[in-house]
Design a protein around this nucleic acid. Sequence first.
DNA 1: GGATTGACGTGTC
DNA 2: AGACACGCCAATC
Length: 110
Amino acid sequence: MKDPNFFEKVFDVVRLIPPGKVTSYGAIAKFLGMANSSRMVGWAMHAASNAIPPIPAHRVVNSSGLLTGKIHFGTPTLMEELLSSEGIIVVNDKIQQFKKHFWDPTIELL
DNA sequence: GGATTGACGTGTC
DNA sequence: AGACACGCCAATC
């Protein structure tokens, strides 16, 4: 890793997500100025697994509120357990009231 | 250095 | 409404 400033930005945003809140890859990508490059956020998240301090990636889901990345948590239920622990209701790997729990960095931070 | 992949998003059929 | 296709940028093979 040379200087993954892009990753650090993503990490910083994700770490700023307050408990009980969630955001989407697209929102982060947009905040970073790459609205249609949401894949990079996912890629950054993959690197986040190796980041210190650990990134609360369980608060980051896709635009549908679906726990797409739960597979990378080691156990397929860990992600919903964490979200559920924060008061977020997860059913069928999908966040209920996603819009209500949605935390938009472009609004909260900007 | 070219080809492939990747925790996605949006638009179309 | 569900499925398929394309785009996007960076990292890895």
